[in-house]
Amino acid sequence: TELRLDINGREIKVDGADKETLKELLKLAEKNNDEKAIRIIRHLLER
């Protein structure tokens, strides 16, 4: 399955993203107070 998050109005594919990319996405999600995106990205970073 493909995991996509809508961050800042942009749909971004997050599964398969490297750790650096995920960290950047996490910063974006935190800036937007997007709890769902934050939770998902943190979960991916823990893998």
Rank of each mutant, 00 (worst) to 15 (best):
N33I: 07
E24F: 09
I38H: 04
A17F: 08
L25R: 00
D18L: 05
L5S: 10
E35W: 07
G9V: 01
K13M: 13
A17W: 07
N8S: 04
R42L: 12
I12H: 12
A17C: 08
L28Y: 11
K13I: 14
R39A: 13
T21D: 03
D6R: 11
E30T: 09
R39L: 11
E24C: 09
K27P: 07
G16F: 13
T1Y: 08
A37W: 02
I7N: 01
A17E: 14
I38Y: 03
K36R: 08
E46K: 04
E2S: 05
K36Q: 11
L26N: 01
I38W: 02
N33A: 08
A37K: 01
N32R: 03
L45D: 02
L5C: 14
E20G: 09
L26E: 04
E20C: 08
R4I: 15
G9C: 01
L45S: 03
L25D: 00
T21W: 05
R47K: 12
E35K: 07
N33W: 11
L25V: 10
N33V: 07
D34F: 07
K19Q: 10
E46F: 05
I12L: 04
D6Y: 08
I38R: 05
E35M: 08
D6G: 04
I12W: 07
A17V: 06
K19R: 11
K23H: 09
E30H: 07
A37N: 05
R47A: 13
L45R: 01
E30P: 00
L45A: 03
T21S: 10
N32V: 14
L45K: 01
K23R: 12
D34R: 02
D15A: 05
G16K: 13
R10E: 15
E46R: 05
L44K: 02
T1W: 06
R42N: 11
D15W: 01
E30C: 07
R4S: 15
I41Q: 00
I12G: 01
E46S: 08
E20A: 09
I12E: 04
R39S: 13
I12T: 04
A29N: 00
A29R: 00
G9H: 01
H43Q: 13
K19L: 12
I38D: 02
I38T: 11
L44N: 07
L5W: 01
K31P: 04
I7G: 01
K36H: 13
I40A: 06
L22G: 00
K13G: 04
R39Q: 12
I41C: 02
G16T: 14
I7T: 01
L5V: 15
R10A: 13
D15C: 06
L5K: 08
I38P: 00
E11M: 09
L28D: 07
D18E: 04
R10G: 07
I12V: 13
I38G: 06
K19S: 09
K27E: 13
I40D: 04
L22E: 00
K23N: 10
I40F: 04
I41K: 00
K36A: 12
K13P: 06
E11W: 07
V14W: 02
K36L: 12
K27M: 13
I12K: 01
N32G: 15
K31D: 14
I41T: 01
E11A: 05
N8V: 03
I12Y: 15
I7S: 01
D18P: 04
E20Y: 04
E2R: 04
H43N: 10
N33T: 07
D34E: 13
N8E: 06
N32M: 13
K36P: 11
T1N: 15
E2C: 14
N32Y: 15
L3Y: 02
A29P: 00
D34M: 06
G16R: 14
L5H: 04
R42S: 10
R42T: 10
D34L: 09
N33G: 11
R39D: 11
L22W: 03
L25A: 03
H43S: 12
R4L: 15
L28S: 06
R42W: 03
E46I: 05
N32A: 14
K36I: 09
E20H: 09
K23Q: 08
L26T: 01
D18W: 02
R10H: 14
N33S: 09
R47P: 14
R10P: 03
K19D: 08
R4E: 15
R42G: 08
K36C: 07
I41E: 00
L45W: 00
I41N: 00
V14T: 03
H43R: 07
E35T: 09
R39C: 10
H43T: 10
E35S: 08
L25I: 09
L26R: 02
N8L: 05
T1L: 14
E30R: 06
G16D: 09
K36W: 05
H43I: 12
L22T: 00
R42F: 04
R47D: 13
I12Q: 03
E46N: 10
A17I: 07
H43L: 10
R42P: 00
R4D: 15
D6T: 15
K13T: 13
R4Y: 14
E20N: 09
E2G: 05
I12D: 01
R39N: 13
K27S: 10
